[in-house]
Amino acid sequence: MGPAAVATLLVQGMFLGGLYALAGYGFSISLGIIREINVAHGDLMILAAYISLVVLSTWRVFPLLSLLLTVPAMFTVGWLLQRLLLNRALRRGPSHVVVVTFALGIAIENLLLILFSYNNRTLATGYLLQGISLGAVQLPLVMAVDFAASVVVLAALQLIMGHTMLGRAMRAVPANEPAARIIGIRPERIYPLAMGLAMAVNAVAGVLLGSTFVFYPSVGPDYMLIAFGTVILGGLGSLLGTFIGGLVMGEVFVLSGYMFGATYQMMATLIVIFVIMVLSPRGILRGEIF
């Protein structure tokens, strides 16, 4: 195996990792800020891909332009979901959120099945699937777009978290909830905004993975597992950690696929997560951002 082939694998892993991180950011936000496990995270991501599919079948535009509608739509879905359903569940305890979102995930899957059948879909057009070459490395353009989008979204989230009053409030609530209330922050108002933000990011993830791979109504839980992996690998409460966690998972996925075949990719990835969790139980970056 020549150096060009190795480089191709590594870059492919990195780009895939960027997409995985994109799938993880929203999960990182709901877990780190709202402290709830959204089991329907992957299904909501796939929902965004289907919303984009509908948009693209109505207006035949460049796939990524559908984000202009999908992102605000998913922000609204996230806001309403938290405001109407999850805030109430949260008041009874975190395990109620797991039950409610588990049911929500099944409902979304079945709704998508009724509306779109179980056929494989993709948002990609010829242009996005064209190969590009970076030096000796040959890859489809869409994977480079995935990685670039992941970096841009990370930077935007860091900006919001670090330099806006809303971002400060989002980090303050999990850090010390009683104190947050005393200075006039209402967590029950912050949570829907955080969930809206998480789902807006999830829309980007859904549209990009729908442009990179095929999707079908029941594929959501696979991406939920990936999102979960990036977040616990990177460390709870650190978006940069989620990004790094995504890169690790992407590399392991691609390299293990090359070495042992596709059957063992997921297992290899889970083993690496397990090993890192044993060595550093709080993840690679020990959660400092939120």
């Binding site: 009053m165 400060r168 409030a169 980090r171 850090a175 010390n176 005393i182 200075i183 006039g184 922050i185």
Partner: peptide, 24 residues
């Protein structure tokens, strides 16, 4: 109110803690 136990956000910077005093 400066609450008992100080009510700070330990993982946020000093500057962020101060600016949160202007929340709302």
């Amino acid at each position: 109110l400066v609450p008992e136990g100080r009510g700070l956000f330990p993982n946020l910077s000093v500057r962020d803690n101060l600016e949160l005093g202007l929340y709302g």
